[in-house]
Each structure stands twice: as structure tokens, then as C-alpha cells.
Design a protein around this nucleic acid. Structure first.
Length: 289
DNA sequence: CCACAGGACGGCT
DNA sequence: AGCCGTCCTGTG
């Protein structure tokens, strides 16, 4: 069974869905780019993970993506958007490459990167955990929270876990959250879960208004707010600035930054509506090149 | 044992 | 408004 979507086409046989001839898509780079923390790489190089309550196993073979344990509705309703297939990266790359040779080089290093559309609540907590923390430990903390307070799901002979609900974290309490080795962030996580239950509608906001609302949560500053906005797909203009991005931006755009010393403002003017995508290329390039 | 890495907070000026 | 000590854990 063949189905045509905007930008891609898929083939479906017995719970295996193949996306054919993908362009600007590298599964490994996308899932190891620091924007998500819960995907597990298997020995056969496939990735297993969950989002929006659905478990999946994905393998990339050249320009084909093989989704195991995926029916056509799951792909249409969840994974098509999760992997941002609705966005035409070729045209965005063309625009960014036209800006300068720095962008050209960063994109050339990992042209298969994409910004995922992840779940807002999960990202809010995940990026509170990420503050003042490194990626292996962030993953460990989040996995522990999921194993202890998330709903278990059986998938291809193993047990996966949904991300804990706000209610589950409130019921766990600050002391038990602390035992997941999140350190002083336990208080932030607990308070955020409580506040989120009262303010579930915040993700109806967009842009600067959403950022202002996000920063009202304890443990959420400008960087965390930008990450949540970008990696949920709620704002592709958000430009999260961590030490790596700050380092590479001051290095690559030294002259241009003399006029506009606020990196965030400069980036949003310079990269425009795709600042967030530019950030991902630069971040990955700065960390791995 | 110590130094360091990683953002937000809160108290200070 | 900006500066800076503190928070916790893992690694070298």
C-alpha cells in the first residue's frame, strides 16, 4: 500500500511502514543532536523510542526509513509531524546557505539535521533537568523519572515507559523526585508539575507571550524556554543560547556582533524565521566538528 | 583530594 | 539594569 504525503511517500506492509527517498534526513544526527533524550540506539543501529504514547523502532537504510511497529494511522497522526516531514528543509537550507560561508560549512557537516516536534509537557520537565547539566546525566535522570513514575508499555519484547504525567510527579513528591538524582532541580520539577496542572492552557500562547509564560515556571530561564519552544515546533524562530552556541556565534560572527551585541536579537534578525533551525546546525557543528 | 562543566535563582549593587 | 555566589552530580 503506497501513500503520498507532502514532501514524502510511504509504503506499508504488515505493521512496517517505509518512508521512501527521504532528503535531508539523518536519523542518527537528528536523535543525537541534544534536542531529545529518550531514544535508545540498538546494536543493529536502529533506534527505539516513544512519543505521544506510541512506541516505535526506526532504522535508516540509505534514503529509506523503516518504521517497525507502526500502522498507517500512527504515521499519519504522530510520526509525520514528529519528524517534521511537513517542512521542506531543502528550501530552508538553500536560504541559510546563501547567507554566508559559515552556515554553508555548518550545514555541510550535518545536512540531515531536523528540528523535532516533541511533546510540550515532556520537554518542559526535560529542559529543567538539562539546566547546569550534561547530556549523559540528563538522559539518566529522565529515564529514572520515566521508569519510576511513567506508565509501562510492552513493545517488541521490552518494557518502555511513557513520560510521567504532571499528576504522577505531584503524587511522587519532591523527596522522591530528588531520589531520581536530579539534585536541586527536584524542587523545580515538583513546583512546575503543580503549576502546570493549574496552567495547562499556556501552550495555546505563541511567540514572546509564550516565552514570558514559560519563564514563570520555577527552573525555567530564557535558554530553557527557547528550547521548549523550538523543540516542540511551537516556534522555529526561538534561538536557544547555551555555552556552545555562544562560543561558536562569537567566533563566527565576531564582526557582525560588534554592531548588535545581543546574540539572541542578532540571530533572529539575521536568520529570520528559521533562526532555530540555524541554531541546531551551529550547535551540532560546534560540538562535533 | 580538587577543578571543572553545565543554567537558573536570588541577593547584591 | 548587570554581576556573581550558590545549587548537585559526574568526570578527569
Amino acid at each position: 500500500m503506497i501513500t503520498n504525503y507532502i514532501n514524502i511517500k510511504t509504503e506499508y506492509i504488515e505493521n512496517v511502514l517505509t518512508v521512501k527517498d527521504v532528503k535531508n534526513f539523518n536519523l542518527h544526527d537528528i536523535l543525537e543532536s541534544g534536542q531529545c533524550f529518550r531514544w535508545v540506539r540498538n546494536k543493529d543501529s536502529s533506534y527505539t523510542g516513544m512519543a505521544y504514547g506510541k512506541a516505535i523502532n526506526i532504522t535508516q537504510k540509505e534514503n529509506d526509513l523503516i518504521f517497525k511497529g507502526c500502522n498507517q494511522d500512527d504515521f499519519k497522526n504522530t510520526w509525520y509531524r514528529y519528524f517534521d516531514f511537513e517542512t521542506d528543509y531543502s528550501s530552508i537550507i538553500e536560504k541559510l546557505e546563501a547567507l554566508d560561508s559559515n552556515m554553508k560549512e555548518a550545514i555541510k557537516f550535518a545536512p540531515g539535521l531536523r528540528v523535532l516536534n516533541q511533546e510540550p509537557w515532556e520537554l518542559l520537565i526535560s529542559y529543567i533537568v538539562s539546566a547546569n547539566n550534561n547530556i549523559p546525566r540528563i538522559k539518566k535522570c529522565i529515564n529514572t523519572l520515566c521508569e519510576r513514575y511513567g506508565e509501562p508499555i510492552e513493545f517488541m519484547g521490552e518494557t518502555l515507559y511513557n513520560f510521567p504525567t504532571p499528576k504522577a510527579l505531584v503524587e511522587a513528591g519532591e523527596e522522591n523526585i530528588f531520589l531520581c538524582r536530579v539534585g536541586y532541580r527536584a524542587k523545580y520539577i515538583y513546583m512546575t508539575a503543580k503549576r502546570y496542572i493549574e496552567n495547562k492552557d499556556i501552550f495555546n500562547y505563541r511567540g514572546e507571550e509564550l516565552k514570558k509564560e514559560l519563564i514563570k515556571f520555577h527552573g525555567v530561564g530564557p535558554k530553557v524556554a527557547d528550547c521548549v519552544m523550538l523543540y516542540t515546533g511551537l516556534s522555529k524562530e526561538a534561538f536557544p543560547i547555551d555555552v556552545w552556541v555562544k562560543r561558536i556565534m562569537t567566533q563566527l560572527y565576531e564582526d557582525k556582533l560588534k554592531k548588535e551585541k545581543n546574540i539572541d536579537l542578532f540571530a533572529r534578525k539575521y536568520f529570520g524565521e528559521y533562526a532555530g533551525i540555524a541554531q541546531l546546525y551551529l550547535f551540532y557543528y560546534a560540538r562535533n566538528a
